[in-house]
Structures are given as C-alpha cells and as structure tokens.
C-alpha cells in the first residue's frame, strides 16, 4: 500500500507493508537512522518522534497509520546548520553519555516545552517518564532541558 508523508519538511510517497512499523520505515526506507529502536515494545522511548505536533513512540505505530501526516525526527531539528536549542543544551550540559536514548529524549522534550515552556524540575521528570536512559544520566538530561527552556524564552 502507498502512503504520503511529510518528513522534516520533505514529502515522500512510499510503498509500505501493513506489518511495517513507522520506526522501521523511517530507518530503512528513508535512512533516517537517528530514530533509534531500543525495546520495540513502547517502553523505552528511544524511537520517539513528532507526528502532527505530538511526541509518539514510532515503534508502536504502523507506517500505514501516518498516511497524510507531518513528521519531525531528530534529523529535522537543526535549521541551516544551527543546532536546535535542545541539542545545544544537551551538548553543553553533558546531557548524554552513550547517546542511544538522546534522540528520543530530545524529541519528547520538544513536545514538553511546546506544551509548557517553563517547566519545573518535577514537570520535566514527569514528562520524561516514557524515556529510559540506561546510562542513568537523568540529572544532566533534566538540567539540559531546563537550560534549553531558559535559552528559548
């Protein structure tokens, strides 16, 4: 079956099978490998992307479901070679260790700051409940998001 999606501003028309997850489609068809597949059971959040403005776990969506939708992945955040404030903040605040969870963390934080531009530490931690960092680097992830929120004011 055919789907039409806009990914990071670019339109794609692709043939997909019903069984294909959105995460697999992004990685394998569009070579957007910044979206990571960790648990593949919608627990870890490393596959988080933005669909129509909302953070979702792309391992638990079928590619077929997003026909006609607008998608942003981690590759779509930087503009004209300039990192997104969240990306800079993660870099400056040591918000990543191995880096596997980072794209998902940042994409969730994009939705979080969209809904709540000045979140408290508790609100950030609540917002990140669906993202695991197995390096356990949560303190600096939270700090990065706080700094990004400040810089985006």
């Amino acid at each position: 079956m055919q789907i039409k999606v806009k990914v990071n501003g670019k339109e794609h028309i692709s043939d997909v099978t019903p069984m294909q997850s959105l995460a697999a489609y992004l990685r394998e068809e569009l070579q957007l490998t910044g979206t990571h597949i960790g648990c593949d059971t919608s627990s870890c959040g490393s596959c988080t992307i933005i669909v129509n403005g909302k953070a979702v776990k792309s391992c638990t969506l079928l590619a077929a479901q997003v026909d006609g939708d607008e998608i942003t992945t981690i590759e779509g955040l930087a503009q004209n070679g300039e990192m997104h404030p969240l990306q800079s903040a993660f870099k400056e605040n040591h918000g990543l260790q191995c880096g596997f969870c980072t794209p998902g963390m940042i994409m969730t934080a994009v939705n979080l700051l969209e809904d709540n531009p000045k979140p408290s530490e508790e609100e950030i931690r609540h917002g990140l409940e669906g993202n695991f960092c197995r390096c356990t680097g949560y303190h600096n992830i939270v700090k990065s998001i706080q700094h990004a929120a400040d810089s985006m004011k």
Partner: peptide, 9 residues
Amino acid sequence: IGDLQVRNM
C-alpha cells in the same frame, strides 16, 4: 496513564 507519548496516541 503510561507516559506522554502513550497518552498522545
């Protein structure tokens, strides 16, 4: 329920 991403879907 669940987490933000789950609540969004």
